[in-house]
Amino acid sequence: MGLEQFKNRNVGTQNYTMVDAGHSPQGAMCQFKQVVKRTFKGELFVGLWVTMRSMIKALFANDMHTVKYPLEKLPISPRYRAIHDMLRLLESGHYRCIGCGLCEKICISNCIAMDTRYDENQRKEVSEYTINFGRCIFCGYCAEVCPELAIVHGPRYENASQQRAGFSLFEDMLTPIDKLNLQQEYDGFGAVSPNADENIKQTPLAY
């Protein structure tokens, strides 16, 4: 191996290569020709026409792209990752969160915190749960890791606040009990795949 590569001390340029991007005119005549060509070719007028066409379309063909945001909203993808929702069990109405703490652990911006306790039914109960939305980067890991599909990303993306960090409590994100019938099953990050049943290994539990 030669030392050529070390002799170019202009670090950073070694990985670049020049590509031919056409020729610039050589000599006064060529330059003049180019000016004339460009002047009379009408490129500028093509530009004018394009914008005019857009204006005509916008005004008369109603081809307007503006969405009047607070008044109109675009439909969002089910995989969109906005403010979290806490889902309830459809049958009993009890919230699904079992307090396993996986979302807290996986959260890369460290914005989820939960306190748990031993409740009177000898179950693990979440006594407090917050997400610091000032920090949350909506990466979707929490929804993905949740074994119960309890924390999911909901469609509420309007989360601007006057404070740097808005905290959200468990109850704020929880489906209201009277709106249980409106609760949508989540099909975004971490949701059960449509063919999940096929992937399960059956065990001989006859009981």
Partner: peptide, 9 residues
């Protein structure tokens, strides 16, 4: 300690 904290925390 029951249900107070995960070990990893």
């Amino acid at each position: 300690f029951v249900y107070q904290s995960n070990a990893w925390d």
